[in-house]
């Protein structure tokens, strides 16, 4: 009995503490702005520095278009994302931009949200839903661009391995296929959900390049690093590692550094982590494909702000606003870094 009472007291204290914590954190500008500013929401597919850059774009657009936009990063995939969207709908928002984690199976959720407020997708599209448009890039094209970087670094060809967090996501599948098709000199495809992908687990042999396995790590950085180490151990003549997610290439760099292969092992990256940019500047990384997430945030908010104010002309034709990719190599890395800094500063 006694312990029960004390447990209850403890819970009570805890809930008071938690409540206090929430009130303390709830000092966002929302409160005062209920008068005029439209409220928008920018939902990502996870927690990642990539999204911090996108958030910078959101902040810049907020100022420029006079709206308020909440950035929501679901830490635990589909379930968290659903919870967050439902919360938004319950509170009422004037527009949502969402990066769909599972495009095929989230259609109900996206359509429901789209029926209540203007909804667009960014980064990862859900083409079969009622979203108004998609802000993003062509991941397949980006993959091919990465393939070109590999080719430029290894004119003689060689063995290539790909590293990624998860292969279930459309963007990783498209990137991977782009890299493979470019290295095997296949003709370019037009992207779509129904795109055929090569099965994983079998070496794909082309004229010059052999694309070995694609290893996944489920966003565990230690696994990502171990995957890179194991790749070097099992394939002594591995020539190039391609990291499809932002954190993959930095872990490949760590592994190569410890193995004494930094510089000789060709590393191709996606996105713009500082370690990668430094690597490009130092010549230890061939290059990276930046999707310019800043513009994902900026453009999404621009379109949503227009829609919220009844301006349909902001919608791109074909429902697709392509944010151009940037190939960052030693030639343009310094300028890219400066621009990135500027963007991030502008967002603050």
């Amino acid at each position: 009995m006694k312990s029960k009472i004390s447990a209850r007291t403890f819970l009570l204290t805890l809930s008071i503490a938690v409540a206090a914590l929430f009130t303390a954190c709830d000092k966002k500008p929302e409160g005062g702005a209920s008068g005029g500013k439209k409220k928008l929401a920018y939902v990502t597919n996870g927690v990642d520095p990539f999204w911090n850059t996108a958030a910078a774009g959101v902040r810049a657009a907020e100022k420029k278009f006079g709206v308020e936009c909440e950035v929501l990063m679901p830490p635990k995939g589909v379930v968290d994302q659903k919870r967050m969207v439902e919360g938004l709908l319950a509170r009422g928002v004037d527009g949502i931009a969402i990066s769909s984690i599972d495009p095929k199976n989230q259609i109900d959720l996206i359509n429901e949200a789209a029926s209540r407020c203007p909804l667009i997708t960014h980064d990862s599209d859900a083409p079969e839903s009622k979203r108004l448009c998609f802000v993003g890039m062509d991941n397949y094209k980006a993959g091919r661009a990465a393939g070109k970087l590999v080719k430029s670094a290894l004119p003689q060809g060689g063995k290539v391995m790909i590293f990624v967090g998860r292969l279930e996501q459309l963007n990783s599948q498209q990137r991977r296929q782009g890299v493979i098709d470019e290295l095997l000199d296949r003709p370019a495809l037009t992207t779509g959900v129904t795109m055929k992908t090569d099965p994983n687990g079998f070496p794909l042999i082309g004229e010059k390049f052999t694309v070995l396995d694609t290893r996944t790590d489920n966003f565990d950085y230690a696994r990502a690093k171990a995957n890179a180490q194991d790749a070097m151990a099992s394939v002594p003549d591995l020539a190039c590692m391609v990291g499809l997610y932002a954190y993959n290439a930095p872990q490949c760099m760590e592994a190569a550094k410890e193995a004494g292969k930094i510089g000789t092992m060709k590393i191709v990256s996606f996105d713009e982590q500082e370690a990668v940019l430094q690597g490009i500047a130092d010549g230890t990384v061939v290059g990276t494909i930046s999707q310019q997430p800043y513009y994902y945030g900026f453009e999404s908010v621009r379109i949503l702000a227009g829609l919220a104010n009844g301006d349909k002309s902001v919608l791109p034709k074909d429902g697709f606003l392509e944010v151009p990719i940037v190939e960052v190599t030693k030639a343009n890395v310094e300028k890219f870094r400066v621009d990135l800094k500027k963007m991030q500063e502008a967002g603050k």
Partner: peptide
């Protein structure tokens, strides 16, 4: 040791599971 080993650390992910 994990953080020193990995160099890049994601607060939401390091050590999960």
């Amino acid at each position: 040791l994990f953080s020193l080993n990995l160099n890049s650390i994601q607060p939401s992910g390091l050590g999960e599971f």
